[in-house]
């Protein structure tokens, strides 16, 4: 469907050119000051003494362990939340049942909970004085201050990302394509794989990217359940904090720069996906 090109509009209702220019200048200035300058500060602080200390800080064994742990946590939490998000989006968008709105609200709940609380709840459950703490201690199972706790806290924090990206898109797409597939004899799995999934793949990818960025960058929640054991339960963000508290500023900013780079790549990819993929359709008015 080609929408006819918008007619050239005579701007009757528009601001004077100087107002326009001033507004743009002001916006660029304020956003630059508030958003861009911090990023520049990270780069400058990290490179204060050239590249050598940066490389040294990142290849330090503790830093490498932190990077490995961060990747491992993301590799577990992101697939879990992708699967859960897909299931949630499928049942919320493609079926009517009582309590649908409530379910969606509950799924978004972790967004409105402080990251510290997201970590705290796991300590309350599995910590030494938690509900299940003694039982776990008897069996020598470590959850808090170990990998399982870090993963659980990360999953909690990144829980809504995929579902939240998919639900509005799938609701907008409606059910008729799936119904058409059913009348043509497709099974449930065939319908999902051949009809639904291709229609949401870019949105799904975008949700997964955001989920991943948050999983790798999460600080508050993992800080509470980590125990800060160097080389063992320190993720990259936590490693930054330790270095900073030890006045190893260059090292702290070097690792921070690495994480900032991840954020920039995520943003660029997301922008690209939104411009070309199915999310663009959601933004455009339906023709």
């Amino acid at each position: 469907m080609r929408r006819p090109g918008g007619e050239p509009r005579v701007e009757v209702a528009a601001e004077a050119p100087w107002v326009r220019r001033l507004a743009i200048l002001l916006a660029v200035l304020v956003l630059g000051l508030l958003l861009l300058l911090p990023l520049l500060a990270v780069a400058t602080e990290a490179l204060r003494r050239g590249w050598t200390p940066v490389v040294a800080a990142i290849t330090d064994p503790d830093a490498l362990a932190a990077i490995r742990l961060t990747l491992l946590i993301a590799a577990i939490s992101v697939p879990v939340n992708t699967l859960g998000g897909l299931a949630a989006a499928w049942c919320i968008a493609k079926f009517d049942f009582p309590g649908r709105a409530l379910l969606l609200a509950l799924i978004e709940l972790p967004f409105s909970v402080s990251p510290v609380i997201s970590g705290l709840v796991w300590v309350l459950l599995f910590g030494a004085q938690g509900w299940l703490g003694p039982w776990l201690q008897e069996r020598d199972i470590q959850i808090v201050f170990a990998l399982p706790g870090l993963v659980l806290a990360t999953i909690f924090v990144t829980f809504p990302f995929v579902a939240r990206t998919l639900v509005p898109l799938m609701q907008e797409q409606g059910r008729s394509a799936e119904e058409a597939a059913a009348t043509l004899g497709a099974s449930g799995w065939q319908t999902f794989r051949r009809v639904t999934l291709p229609d949401i793949r870019w949105a799904l990818l975008s949700g997964v990217l955001l989920c991943n960025a948050r999983a790798m960058g999460e600080f508050g929640a993992v800080s509470v359940v980590s125990g800060h054991i160097r080389g063992e339960t320190n993720t990259m963000p936590l490693h930054i904090e330790i270095l900073y508290n030890e006045y190893q500023f260059v090292g702290a900013f070097a690792v921070a720069g690495l994480l900032a780079l991840l954020a920039l790549v995520t943003l660029a990819a997301k922008a690209l996906l939104e411009r070309s993929g199915d999310l663009a359709r959601l933004r455009r008015p339906p023709a």
């Binding site: 008729s176 394509a177 119904e179 058409a180 597939a181 009348t183 004899g185 099974s187 009809v195 291709p198």
Partner: peptide
């Protein structure tokens, strides 16, 4: 529906985009 073998043309066609 998938076993009925009935052809159905939807109001908005429901083509696979």
């Amino acid at each position: 529906a998938r076993e009925r073998g009935i052809g159905f043309v939807f109001q908005n066609y429901a083509l696979f985009r």
